[in-house]
Simulated scan of single mutants.
Amino acid sequence: MSFDIQAPNVDFPRPAPGFVPFDPAAAVSIRGLYKRFDGRTAVDGLSLDIPVGSFYGLVGPNGAGKTTTLNMVTGLLVPDAGGAMILGRDVWSDVNAAKRAIGVMPQPDQIFDRLTGLQLLVYSGMLRGMHRAESTARARDLLAAFDLVRASNTVVADYSAGMTKKICLACAMIHSPRLLVLDEPFESVDPVSSANLKDILIEYAATGGTVIISSHVMALVERMCTHVAVIDHGRVRAGGTVEEVAAGEDLEDRFLELVGGRHEAARISWLDGGAPAAGAAR
């Protein structure tokens, strides 16, 4: 059993002639992506190349355009202009072929949480065209890798937030994709589970897989990623290896420089922690 989604019948503008050509050797090559919502520009001519085998972090403040960019790259959202290639294939000329190479981590509200963990993984594999026996075998391997064996027959709706994150990641990996796209994969995950997830992802990247994560946690990106792009107002402010982007600074400090830095904290007269004012009677 497989499930293909028909590409929308759209003819959106491609990058203008002045754009640098797509890089077909890259895991992901993006040129001139543009998207507006209700008159607001979410992604503004964004271009980026993500090398094969890299662990690539997309970082930026809330509303920077990270999730919108990932949705367009993975065939979930039609761009207003521009385009993207996945492993040398144009995403929107054959959206189903592009999607078969990608594992996109679903959000907890996008899964069938009335299934057990085992059922959900088997179902996810069969949607990708795998036979039930192969899907079941891989599901059991993933449940063991993510320390979910004891919860394999528990309905996912009864999982903790961290367990739900893990089963969502397992759903993205079951068909052994060449590219993993993960939006805030470590949010709500406890430190032990987070360490296990990191080990699995680092091993996957070491075998030639490419991992793209969006995150707000600079320390995590600096520690895990080989490459990073700082996105703000729908544009890439800096991109390259972590060392190149950090430019000799702590990555978080560099990030704050690129997106505008800290603003002066507002004074709230009543927020004083209860300490007596200087010279006040005790």
Rank of each mutant, 00 (worst) to 15 (best):
A101F: 00
S47D: 06
R89D: 15
W92R: 08
G75H: 03
F55Y: 12
P79C: 07
G88W: 10
T41I: 14
L70K: 10
V59I: 14
G45M: 12
A81P: 09
G39E: 08
M85Y: 13
L46T: 06
L70E: 09
I50Q: 01
V43N: 02
V73T: 09
S93T: 14
R89K: 11
T74V: 15
T69M: 08
G75W: 05
I102N: 09
V95P: 00
S54E: 09
V59C: 08
A64R: 09
T74Y: 01
V78K: 04
T68G: 10
L87W: 00
V73Y: 01
L76H: 15
I86C: 03
P79K: 06
A81F: 11
A64S: 06
V78F: 00
P61L: 13
N62P: 14
T69Q: 08
D38K: 11
R40L: 11
S47F: 14
R36G: 01
V78D: 00
V52N: 04
D80M: 07
M72Y: 06
G75F: 04
G83M: 02
A84T: 11
D44H: 10
A64G: 01
D90F: 12
A97R: 12
L76G: 14
L77G: 03
L70H: 02
L87E: 12
A97Q: 14
G83H: 08
G60F: 03
L70N: 00
P51W: 01
W92S: 10
G82T: 04
A101W: 14
I86V: 15
A101D: 15
G53Y: 03
I102H: 11
M85P: 08
G53R: 10
R100M: 12
L87N: 13
I50G: 05
F55T: 12
V78P: 04
R100Q: 13
T68H: 02
I50P: 03
G53S: 05
A64C: 07
D49R: 02
T74D: 01
A97E: 15
A81H: 12
W92C: 11
P79S: 10
T67D: 13
G63Q: 06
A97H: 09
L70I: 14
I50E: 05
A101Q: 15
T68V: 07
L48D: 01
P51H: 02
N96Y: 00
R100D: 11
T68A: 09
L70D: 04
G83A: 10
D49T: 00
K66G: 02
R40V: 14
T69I: 12
L70C: 11
D90T: 00
D94Q: 07
G75Q: 04
T68Y: 10
K99S: 07
T67W: 03
T67S: 15
P51E: 06
P61G: 14
N62E: 09
